[in-house]
Computed example of a mutant assay.
Amino acid sequence: MATDILVLNGPNLNLLGKRQPDIYGHETMADVERGCRSVAREYGFTIDFRQSNAEAQLIDWVHEAREQHRSIVINPAGYSHTSIALMDALSAFSGPIIEVHISNIHRREAFRHLSYVSKVASGVICGLGINGYSLAVHHLACHLNKQA
Rank of each mutant, 00 (worst) to 15 (best):
I97F: 07
H81K: 01
D88A: 03
N53L: 08
P96R: 13
F45I: 12
I59K: 01
I97D: 02
G10Q: 02
I47T: 06
W61F: 05
N9K: 04
L8H: 00
H63A: 15
A89T: 01
H63T: 12
P11Q: 07
Q57V: 15
E55S: 02
L8G: 00
N75H: 00
E33K: 14
G25C: 01
G25K: 04
R50T: 08
L6E: 08
I72A: 03
E27N: 11
F93W: 04
Q51L: 08
D48E: 14
S91Q: 11
V100C: 01
E99V: 01
L13P: 03
G35N: 12
H26V: 12
I47V: 15
H101V: 01
L90P: 03
E42C: 13
L16F: 05
A92Y: 06
F49R: 06
E99L: 04
I74A: 00
Q51G: 02
S103G: 08
Q51E: 09
T82W: 07
R37K: 13
L58T: 00
L15N: 10
R41K: 14
I5A: 08
W61P: 06
D22G: 02
D88T: 07
Q51H: 10
D22M: 01
R41E: 15
V32H: 03
S91T: 10
E33A: 11
A92F: 08
L58G: 00
E27R: 12
E67W: 05
N53T: 10
A56C: 11
I5P: 08
A56M: 11
D88Y: 00
E55G: 03
I74C: 00
M29L: 15
D4C: 13
D60E: 11
F45M: 15
H63G: 09
E33I: 09
A40R: 05
E67I: 07
C36H: 02
R50W: 14
L16H: 04
Q20D: 14
S71I: 02
A2G: 15
I98E: 02
W61Q: 07
E67Y: 09
R41H: 13
N53V: 10
R66M: 10
I59M: 03
I72F: 04
E64Y: 04
N12G: 11
S94E: 14
A2W: 04
C36N: 02
S71L: 05
T46E: 13
A56Y: 10
G35A: 14
D48S: 15
P21L: 08
I23W: 06
F45K: 15
N9S: 06
L15W: 10
G25M: 04
G17P: 01
G78M: 07
H69G: 09
Y24M: 05
G95W: 07
G95R: 07
